[in-house]
């Protein structure tokens, strides 16, 4: 007996066969619009000379700026930058906890009105530009690192609240149920089960946010909110490239050190 083997028919719909063309068209249009829309301002005549002096400055940094005991040197300002980031992160971690419980979807919540509104608020905080916050706080408390601390504290809530909230949503509810079944009141459940369960994750996210805060604290000074950014922008404006070089080196070393330190600590936590 003979059966004919039929190959599966390869009948694709029109969309499956030609859909990619539409994508190519859309992407092509986006890039056409992008490249046409941007005015290429061209290189200034001074561009190559400036680049050369920047490179020269990076190779010959002003070593005398590293430490001169005046309190306005690289080491003191880097420490100040770290202090802004540290203090801002701790304060924002504390503020973020209630926000996180507000924005976390509860197991019994029905229409997500509470958690939804919390998420919207956190998104608003996250999108509010940090340097605008810094400028607003400078108006309130005057220029200096205090304004930087306040800006970092408020801005970080947007991201920490979101991360904390997600940690709460995904946490293991076993220990909570155990305390409830043993007759614990809601305060006891919170203190003995919820907090110990999520603490390591909260700490890990806080450390991660600290890494980001160190980067933003080093640029907040550009608008006058303290730290290493202030001498940086002055050095760029006065074309003092050797000083720019030493500050850049300082920032790179600081960020690398903090990142590896925080990574070690986070590995221990989880």
């Amino acid at each position: 007996m003979q059966t004919t083997i039929t190959t599966p028919s390869r009948r694709h719909s029109l969309w499956q066969r030609w859909g990619w063309l539409l994508w190519v068209l859309v992407i092509g249009l986006i890039y056409f619009w992008t490249i046409n829309g941007l005015k290429f301002t061209g290189f200034q005549e001074s561009a190559s000379a400036v680049s050369k002096s920047i490179l020269h400055g990076l190779v010959h940094p002003t070593w005398s700026y590293v430490y001169d005991g005046s309190g306005e040197d690289l080491v003191s300002l880097i420490l100040q930058t770290l202090a802004i980031a540290f203090l801002g992160t701790i304060v924002s971690a504390l503020i973020s906890v209630p926000f996180a419980f507000w924005a976390a979807r509860g197991p019994k919540e029905r229409y997500f009105l509470r958690s939804g509104s919390g998420k919207v608020v956190l998104t608003l905080i996250r999108t509010f530009p940090e340097i605008v916050l810094a400028i607003m706080f400078i108006k309130a408390v005057g220029p200096g690192s205090y304004a930087g601390v306040l800006a970092v504290s408020v801005h970080s809530v947007g991201m920490l609240g979101k991360l904390f909230g997600e940690a709460i949503e995904n946490m293991d509810r076993g220990s909570e149920e155990a305390i409830i079944s043993a007759g614990g009141r809601s305060g006891q459940v919170f203190a003995l089960a919820t907090i110990p369960t999520i603490m390591p994750e909260f700490l890990s996210y806080t450390l991660y946010r600290f890494e980001i805060a160190v980067r933003s604290a080093s640029i907040l000074g550009m608008v006058g909110a303290g730290g290493i950014g202030t001498p940086m922008i002055f050095a760029i404006q006065t074309r003092d490239w050797s000083k720019v070089g030493i500050i850049l080196l300082g920032i790179v070393v600081m960020v690398l050190l903090i990142d590896s330190l925080s990574e070690q600590l986070r590995k221990k936590l989880i």
Partner: peptide, 28 residues
């Protein structure tokens, strides 16, 4: 790559504005 990642974006912007002048080229 680690070294490139340490530099904050606004700091890069400040340097590239000095090189390329004010305008979107420095931003890109």
């Amino acid at each position: 790559l680690d070294l490139v990642r340490t530099l904050p974006d606004l700091l890069l912007a400040a340097i590239f504005v000095a090189i390329f002048g004010i305008g979107s080229t420095a931003g890109v």
